[in-house]
């Protein structure tokens, strides 16, 4: 909503000066006054501010809620040991120095050393990322293949049988925790039926259940959006005109309504793909899928604090960046956003 508000404010701001004045200005200044450039600059500034606040939040919570050194040492360690660790990790320096060091290493792509693996966190993260992307892509595919047709079916039969079935499906999707869905699937397909492997990665068979469990919730979300977006399109004047032209119902829906209704769904899917990469921790834990979610879980289990912190920072950065890109792409496509009219 704040995006919406900022856009409104953008629209109220004075537009670029008249062309004659602009020509007289240096080229760079001229560029700065183009609405698109101003929009991108503003959005980027907000994104950077978000990232800054994010780093500050994480840094603050880690230092204030407990002594990170206590996570490292065995319970009952001597004060000398703790002091040594403080010195080793620079925890005895002033807070602002610590924050400066934390930020400057972040800018160099350094997320610190893993306590457990004794290797850089960034390396660990990058080695797990492809698996997460693979899982998220499969889950996304599943959620769209289920969600879009179900949403269309519900919209075309609004208020009737298939719509009610769809509503039930959405409710279940939102009410069943994904890890429970995963566990039930293991019980059915691995234990009783013996069809699918219960854990690990490597073959397409390994991918099926985690993708389903992760995609389950999102299928419900995509269905709900497809339904409402389709309903909106079906009520539009151009659909009325398509029917008035004498087009068969299938053509009206498949050609005229489908493409228009899909735009918001695909936008949400883009955001959700990034979200899936970052919320897969429970599903990856259930199926022992070696992605970044599993890395986060291991970080928690082994009290490997730099890993937990690194995964969270990277997740936030990924989401902020993608949101920024989506905003910019939208502004490029739709001049109404750019100009705020």
């Amino acid at each position: 909503m704040s995006d919406y508000v900022t856009r409104q404010i953008d629209g109220g701001a004075p537009r670029s000066p008249p062309a004659t004045a602009a020509r007289a200005m240096p080229a760079l200044l001229h560029l700065l006054h183009l609405p698109m450039t101003r929009f991108v600059v503003r959005r980027t500034a907000y994104a950077l501010l978000s990232l800054f606040l994010l780093s500050l939040t994480i840094f603050f919570f880690v230092r204030v809620t407990g002594d990170p050194a206590m996570l490292l040492v065995e319970p009952g360690a001597s004060p000398d040991d703790i002091a040594a660790i403080h010195h080793q990790f620079g925890l005895d320096r002033p807070l602002w120095v610590q924050y400066w060091l934390f930020m400057s290493s972040l800018f160099h792509g350094d997320l610190g050393q893993s306590f457990y693996y004794q290797t850089p966190v960034m390396g660990l993260y990058l080695s797990r990322l492809p698996n997460s992307i693979e899982l998220a892509a499969a889950a996304m595919l599943f959620s769209l293949v289920i969600g879009i047709p179900a949403g269309i079916l519900a919209a075309v039969n609004v208020g009737r049988f298939w719509d009610s079935i769809g509503k039930l499906f959405t409710l279940l999707g939102l009410s069943m925790p994904s890890f429970w869905v995963g566990l039930l699937m293991i019980l059915l397909f691995s234990v009783y039926l013996g069809w699918l492997p219960s854990s690990g990665a490597g073959t397409p068979w390994h991918l099926i259940m985690p993708a389903f469990a992760l995609g389950w919730y999102f299928a419900a979300a995509h269905m709900r959006l497809t339904r409402s977006s389709m309903l909106e399109v079906l009520g539009s004047e151009y659909i009325k005109l398509a029917r008035i032209k004498g087009l068969p119902q299938t053509l009206v829906i498949a050609k005229h309504a489908f493409k228009n209704a899909l735009i918001p769904v695909l936008t949400l899917a883009g955001i959700n793909l990034v979200l899936m990469i970052n919320v897969a921790v429970v599903v990856e834990t259930v199926f022992a899928w070696p992605g970044i979610g599993r890395l986060l879980y291991e970080g928690i289990a082994f009290r490997d604090f730099p890993v937990v912190q690194g995964v969270v920072i990277m997740g936030g950065a990924m989401i902020v960046t993608v949101n920024l890109l989506i905003d910019i792409v939208y502004a490029l496509i739709d001049p109404r956003i750019r100009l705020g009219s």
């Binding site: 704040s2 978000s50 994010l54 407990g66 996570l71 986060l296 969270v312 997740g315 902020v320 949101n323």
Partner: peptide, 25 residues
């Protein structure tokens, strides 16, 4: 408040909760 909300919402809520829970115990 709104910048704070934006930042908070930038992280998936669950990841953030896991992060906090992991440090406070």
């Amino acid at each position: 408040v709104m910048r704070l909300t934006d930042t908070w919402l930038a992280l998936p809520a669950l990841t953030f909760a896991i992060f906090l829970a992991a440090i406070v115990g």
